[in-house]
Design a protein around this nucleic acid. Sequence first.
DNA 1: CGCGCGGCCTAGC
DNA 2: AGCTAGGCCGCGC
Length: 108
Amino acid sequence: MGPSGGVFAEIYEIVAQIPPGSVATYGQIAAMAGIPRGARTVGWAMRQSPQHLNLPCHRVVNSSGALSPVHVFGGEEAQSARLEAEGITFLPGGGIDMKRHLWRGPVR
DNA sequence: CGCGCGGCCTAGC
DNA sequence: AGCTAGGCCGCGC
């Protein structure tokens, strides 16, 4: 399906479609890409994702609603700040309110 | 052709 | 409620 004929391309497409103020989980994206159990592959795709694509990788979080490790964005505040700037709300625990910002898909 | 890596997920204690 | 262990998937060398 992907232009490059690779699963990564599919992941990039999906992540790029995540609207501001919404977040998606790796597992969900993986399922959309056709790999329900390939959540880790999604994480790798993000890390290997070309920066010129401007993929909102900061909108991708784990099912726990916790942000990715610090070393990924170069600072936990970096990701949280961007998400908050886009309208994402955080819980007292520091996690994201998945129930409120969880992306349900391209269009529903 | 085969092995290892990774921003995970789920289940069990 | 929190932590540990195992498994899954695709890419790169």
